[in-house]
Design a binder for these strands. Structure first.
Lengths: 334, 334
DNA sequence: CTGAAAGCGCTTACAG
DNA sequence: CTGAAAGCGCTTACAG
């Protein structure tokens, strides 16, 4: 059973495919097609269930009404929630989103960009990774709208939407210090991206501001992409070897692993031992006691990204790049 | 800056586009192109960074090497984890996945199918919803491989991969009964899909098997898509109005809401009050005490789905439909 | 061993 | 008010 084409509709309606095309694309009035013809063709389209072949349309027009979204890992709730919000908002504006995960592999990220490019997506939303600057630059040279989010690549001139991680992390550490904590650990990842580096810098600056010496052993960098069992082992080592009275986890999944360790060690979280997570997670609020966290305003981030994209797509000229920093919020719970 | 086309490569190499096409598609040997020409063309392709336009290729060949994945809600960790696993496995076989959420809307599901169809995806993986039987039947008529998962639509003849929810739910309730529980509640959703209905039937059957009268007020059906605050209110009502000593939550997000209620009510989970969740969630293990749950083997489900799809795609003839039921496991924690 | 040409299903500048 | 025709970038049956 072959799908109908515009030719079939034209034949049935006894008009040219040009006329059918104009009607499908809402240009009937503009091209002064008679009302009678419009009615007739529309009826035939409705009855036959004809849907234009978007592939052919894309080949001809060079665009697709599809926005490509590249995230680090769709199974991380930060990304899956953002993806869902972006999808919702784009959908309402007539755009579809296709997404895929890089899993922090430069190679996979490059392949995804190639795939999206060869599929003629109209715009790109990317949580980037170091090493794909050139690939993104090529997109920019081709005048494709690109919005980076979550992480920035400062050497590129393009749009970026992200949270202020330096400030957020600084604030979290200060809240520990105000509680009188002295042995404050940071558990973070070893990936070398700005938004992760900022969290470490906020940590160090807050310590310095309050004349607390920085102890390298309290800053634990967990290799990305390793099995959780190894992560748990490393965090356990930290808590066993060092006297720690407060810990900031730089990502939600590290916090989850860390909480498992604390549970295993029977280390309760109380006035003698404080924990702050990152990016929130359903488990944080539910935990006994509830876990404080640094929350990125997902709704606002998604909204800002979509607004930037739509503006770019609507405008013929390249708009000035925007770097939008949205404050992250420290949510204190107990 | 315009992208290169096969024509540009042919010009540079001083051969026909036919020859270039054969080389790109690995048919050079078969078409007995001379080694010298192959080398020359490959060199030019590599140097120029030429990538074939997949849109044009799809238009010509009618396929795309893309598999469409339609889930209920990508921000639900059950779906985002499955999506990630499927993406991984498909990627290794040279297929890309594009996904989108239906949000349980028949209309959106239909639009997504239309979109995927007009993009010529090669196969469909769908967690379906009642009301789209006809749309899926059309895909089947067009000989497109379709794998349903999570939920089945029994009136359709196609492939299905899912867990045995009746057995799992029955087993969960029996474990309550063995602990001496008498007032066992089920908190489920009102969506009318088989895999949810099965969970209620397993519940009822287990009660009947042990001569425990079924009390309608202990079976709470929460409207889908309502705000979480309302869900929390309804669950709170249940626990306040009825004497409950055990509760099975039929989905992970209902369990999360339920656990929030219990926390608010200061109802601890112990030998006098038992809880089992569904589909697991990072919060379950971390909870104090850890929450038992019915776990669907995600890895196995994803693996089975991909295997079915690849078999279908590899075979010219339609393969017999398979209904694969994978046992869900009751994970008892404390 | 290689190429000219048709055709996939659209859109749109041009002509009448 | 409407249509014939070119062209988007490929693949492939056919010819030599």
């Amino acid at each position: 059973m072959k799908a109908l084409s515009i030719k079939d509709i034209a034949l049935k309606a006894k008009v040219s495919i040009t006329t059918v095309s104009f009607i499908i694309n809402g240009k009937a009035k503009e091209k002064s097609i008679s009302d009678a013809v419009i009615k007739k063709v529309q009826k035939i389209i409705a009855e036959s269930g004809y849907k234009p072949n978007q592939i052919a349309r894309s080949l001809r027009t060079g665009n697709s009404n599809i926005i490509g979204l590249i995230v680090e890992d769709i199974s991380n709730s930060f990304f899956s929630r953002i993806a869902r919000l972006i999808e919702d908002k784009a959908y309402k504006k007539g755009y579809k989103i296709i997404y895929s995960s890089t899993e922090n592999s430069v190679e996979k990220a490059q392949e995804l960009i190639t795939m999206f490019k060869s599929r003629k997506v109209d715009a790109y939303i990317i949580s980037p990774i170091k090493g794909i600057e050139e690939d993104i630059q090529i997109l920019l040279n081709e005048n494709k709208p690109v919005i980076l989010f979550d992480r920035n690549l400062p050497e590129l001139n393009t749009n970026y939407v992200g949270a202020n991680h330096f400030v957020a992390s600084h604030q979290a550490i200060e809240s520990f210090i105000k509680q009188g904590k002295k042995n404050i650990a940071l558990v973070t990842t070893d990936i070398n991206v700005q938004q992760i580096i900022e969290r470490a810098e906020g940590y160090k600056k807050a310590l310095a501001d309050h004349a607390i010496p920085f102890d390298e052993e309290l800053l634990l960098k967990i290799p990305f992409n390793q099995a959780e069992a190894d992560t748990i082992k490393q965090i356990k080592q930290l808590f066993k070897n060092k006297k720690v009275d407060a810990v900031l986890f730089a990502t939600n999944y590290l916090a989850i692993s860390g909480l498992k360790v604390l549970k295993e060690l029977h280390q309760t979280i109380d006035e003698n031992f404080a924990v702050i997570g990152y990016d929130d997670h359903e488990a944080f609020e539910l935990h006994t006691p509830s876990i404080s966290t640094i929350q990125q305003p997902l709704e606002e981030i998604a909204e800002t990204i979509i607004k930037l994209i739509l503006n770019q797509l609507a405008s013929k000229n390249k708009l000035p790049d925007q770097q939008i920093i949205i404050p992250a919020k420290l949510i204190l719970r107990k």
